[in-house]
Amino acid sequence: MPRPLPHQGPKTFLTYTGMETDLIFTQGIDLPGFASFPLLQTPEGRAHLTRYATDLAAIASRANLGVILESATWVASADRAAPLGYDARAVAAANLDAIALLSELRPTLGDLPTLISANIGPRHDAYAPETQMTADEAAAYHIRQIATLAATDADLITAYTMADPTEAIGILQACRDYYMPCVIAFTVETNGLLPTGGTLEAAISQVDAATNGYAAYYMINCAHPDHFTHVLTDASWARRVGGIVANASRCSHAELDNASELDAGNPAELGRQLANLRQTHPHLRVLGGCCGTDMRHLDHLARFLAC
């Protein structure tokens, strides 16, 4: 079994996965393939990555919360990086460098409870899942990135915006081979269903059954609380959901993909919604912002959590 994670205790942790939309829409930085890992190649890019991490850590520290720093590796896998000109050696180097940047930063944060999450994404477009893999095929694909990340200072691997439970099973199989703690974050549409059409309950139950409950916990990400709050109950499967990383916008994934402007929603309202979910569902220990969010949203969230 993987080593235990400290954020499965009483403290709430903040995390952030909205960097790419903020860079693209508010700072005018082009990210082909929605990839942030190429920023590691320039001093300016590394400064951006460091700033997001330090800003988030400062917000968490002021509110007496912990922080989970996400690496810039969501699309740093073979099929997603190849169109950007990265071969296997370059992809591996990018993964190592992304974790090293956060590892070097962590000692500067003092006694702030800090975890490094190796962020991985689906093999294909999560919002338009067309090609499904078997669990073994998914494990064979993802194990290359997971093997690289397992050799770093990363505390856990988090698979974000997952739409296919079978792919999640393969990811967990690969993580188990390297004794790495792993979190699976499913994304849902405006009706609370996965992009593949299944329910969150069915997905979590299927993955837990196939992996003997290997996932440290599950999360929901890249969706607004209005899209999924109604499906969160007190059932045993729902208590496996340990975190929410929410979108700022109430728009669907299709609407967001076609948007020419960023919908930042209402930062204070989103912060209060997430904090209220934490009160209603005390098993939620990780909260944060995804697409359309920035540090305003995280600051409001932290303030409400500290109340």
Rank of each mutant, 00 (worst) to 15 (best):
232 L>Y: 04
150 A>S: 13
192 G>M: 01
137 E>C: 12
187 T>L: 02
115 L>K: 14
161 T>H: 04
226 D>E: 09
138 A>D: 08
158 T>Y: 00
142 H>P: 11
172 L>S: 01
143 I>Q: 15
170 G>Y: 10
189 E>T: 12
191 N>W: 13
166 T>S: 06
165 P>V: 12
226 D>N: 14
221 N>G: 01
223 A>R: 07
176 R>D: 03
168 A>Q: 01
179 Y>D: 13
170 G>E: 07
212 N>D: 11
143 I>F: 01
199 T>C: 10
220 I>C: 05
184 I>G: 01
115 L>Q: 14
147 A>K: 15
114 T>S: 15
148 T>Q: 11
130 E>H: 15
201 E>K: 13
134 T>I: 13
219 M>D: 05
182 C>S: 11
157 I>S: 03
136 D>T: 11
144 R>D: 06
190 T>W: 02
142 H>Y: 08
164 D>P: 08
176 R>Y: 10
231 V>Q: 06
166 T>A: 08
185 A>F: 03
169 I>F: 00
150 A>V: 10
151 A>K: 13
134 T>D: 02
159 A>Y: 12
212 N>W: 05
196 T>I: 12
179 Y>T: 15
196 T>C: 10
151 A>G: 09
184 I>Q: 01
139 A>M: 14
197 G>T: 10
215 A>T: 04
215 A>S: 13
150 A>R: 03
130 E>T: 07
175 C>Y: 04
156 L>A: 00
137 E>P: 11
173 Q>A: 07
136 D>L: 15
191 N>V: 11
213 G>K: 03
128 A>D: 10
134 T>P: 10
158 T>L: 04
224 H>P: 08
172 L>C: 12
179 Y>G: 09
151 A>E: 10
194 L>D: 00
201 E>Y: 09
183 V>D: 01
118 A>H: 05
191 N>T: 15
117 S>G: 07
164 D>K: 04
124 H>C: 15
231 V>G: 03
114 T>V: 15
187 T>R: 04
158 T>W: 00
165 P>W: 07
170 G>F: 04
142 H>C: 03
211 T>P: 06
139 A>F: 02
129 P>N: 06
229 T>H: 12
208 D>R: 04
215 A>Y: 06
143 I>T: 15
228 F>G: 02
225 P>H: 09
198 G>N: 15
131 T>V: 14
219 M>H: 06
128 A>T: 14
227 H>W: 02
233 T>K: 14
169 I>P: 01
